[in-house]
Design a protein around this nucleic acid. Structure first.
Lengths: 195, 195, 195, 195
DNA sequence: GAATAAGCGAGACGGTACGTCTAGTCTTATT
DNA sequence: AATAAGACTAGACGTACCGTCTCGCTTATTC
């Protein structure tokens, strides 16, 4: 980080170093032990450089999220024509990634960050594909007739994401089966007669 | 806290002062500006007294929650026999309370606290009546046949709570109508799953 | 000449702006709050322009001193033939100028600058006319026989200047009468040493 | 410094460590490179402890001075009955001490400190014995008739101290002979006829 | 009249220190 | 033995400057 500097335009090297260091520290220690000083130290960057370009700790995390540095993959909901299997596939992917990297801790950190900084919440939701991919898939399901015309698409997505969050907050480590039961309840192909 | 205390047993006055001060500061400034020093100052109490009886900032909040100092009322789900109206009534009560006291900020603070401290999450969920009252009501709905026998009761509660949280985290201030649409979808006479 | 260079030469406007800004800030805030960044800002000049032409903060002050920007007048010791009145006249002028512009603070600032940068000390002494004018006058007094042949001219000047400095450092604001008593003692017709 | 702490009364150990560290750093690096953080680091003390008990960098130095940590000895003016030899003896002692420990740098540092903080000036003057011992000796000389009755005692002392300072500020390293000439001029036992 | 090269305002950069705040531990005197 | 008070080390906060650097522009000199 002390090689080529570019002068009075923003240094791409510094930006990269900050985001890389933040990603590393975030995974190692979690959000509440993440400090601006720590990032600067780890990145070999002056504190002012961070304060110059990011408004808060959360803003840095939001950038990391937006660039896919915290999750390695895109979460796409496939479209096989059948709603429930598609959603289950997406959910499995999400849970696999979360569990692989000490998911509870990761989600809690992200939630803490989101509670502090709006941008993180937005980025997180986008990154998990809730809006872009999940909502789009549900939209198509409405067109297919697999969901009723008045189904509250966004809220369904939020409720699934919310259930993931609540599960993380309550420190349950149950391999995700309950969440699968939830989506099965929501999207059962042949809804059991209920009344 | 400048009263006369009587020696070597735990001071009820100190406990009361701490919880009262915490409640006040939490409402005024939110969780992330809540500090042990601030509580001690406000309560007129030595820091050590707090450290002696509570393990962390979150533990104090959890105590406040458990004693109903953060929410003034109990959230009970009524049982009129009809599931959907009962749930909607409960949801309206919850939203009314949240909106009344700058709810978004309050929920975000609670979520931040829960992300840091497990006890807070548990207390919060209990306090909102999700487990005790909501889950019990859903249980009865299963017996009634208003919900299918295999309905994932706990997860349904968590998904509603989660939706409230996600809504708060994304700073939407939409008067709760979307959440009402969600519960209508979940508990509509025909059920969310349909074919 | 083997060294012909092209391009613009030193900008007189920039030099002028720097010295003017420095003078202004020095008088307003004193030496220890004088910063290169502050000067550059005030002068509307790039920092590099200052670093290119001056080696240090002190060097800029020394330039200001040398150009008479910090003291408005020359301090000349008159030569009426009578030593003591001449010196008293010079001293009165110096004290008048110092007292007029919050002299204690000014002297302290100059002393601080001199302690940091040798050039300032030299400039200061020159500017006050200690060497040029006071020492010359004393020299003439030796020739006149008003001072003994072996009188340590330079040291006498330094001791007067030093007394002014000590007085400023100890924050006495005594209208200069004590200093007048000192020079009367030094240059009384009978001399300081007497038996 | 992490051994015995004394509780909510001022820690003598911390005070000692701070003053010792300050003395060390002051001699090694001079006043302008002396920082609160540096002192805290060297002393193994929290910064707040310094800010709690001293109002500024200068105040710490003043304490060091007052306790004789910067100069190892007391500077006493002897009283043999003969003024000039007594003063010369005192001056030799002072100069010896100053030269022994890179005196110019030391005096400049002290002057810079005094320019910033009044207490340092006072302490310095006291420490060198200017007031206590030198002025007292001159007083006695007045009684003896070795100095005229109206001799400005304090100013004479200040002028000698001032000459030492000016000499240090102008970076002359002349072994002190000029200063000896000055005091000889001031206190010559048999003042040469001058006019 | 182009090409060249220095000076210029601007300001980003890695750093260091500032003075403040809180964490969590420990000691004192009091009750 | 618990308390209110508060000193202690440690370290992060966000700000201010340091001295170096690079950028794009302007300007004078040389080819």
């Amino acid at each position: 980080m002390n090689q080529h500097r570019n002068g009075p335009v923003r240094s791409a090297a510094a930006r990269e170093a900050v985001l890389a260091a933040t990603t590393r520290l975030f995974h190692e220690q979690g959000y509440d032990k993440l400090t601006i000083e720590g990032i600067a130290r780890e990145a070999g960057v002056g504190k002012q450089t961070i304060y110059r370009w990011w408004s808060s700790r959360g803003a840095v995390i939001a950038d990391c999220l937006a660039e896919g540095r915290l999750f390695p993959v895109e979460f796409e909901v496939p479209d096989s024509g059948q709603l429930l299997p598609d959603i289950e596939h997406w959910l499995s992917t999400v849970l696999a990634v979360l569990d692989a990297r000490n998911g509870g801790e990761l989600v809690r950190s992200l939630v803490a960050a989101a509670a502090e900084d709006p941008a993180v919440g937005t980025s997180l939701s986008e990154r998990l594909g809730v809006e872009r991919s999940l909502a789009a898939r549900l939209e198509r399901a409405v067109h297919d007739g697999q969901l009723p015309a008045n189904a509250p698409i966004d809220q369904i997505g939020e409720s699934i994401l919310g259930a993931i969050i609540v599960r993380a907050l309550s420190r349950q480590s149950d391999s995700g089966e309950p969440l699968r039961r939830l989506v099965r309840f929501l999207f059962a192909p042949s809804g059991p007669a209920r009344r």
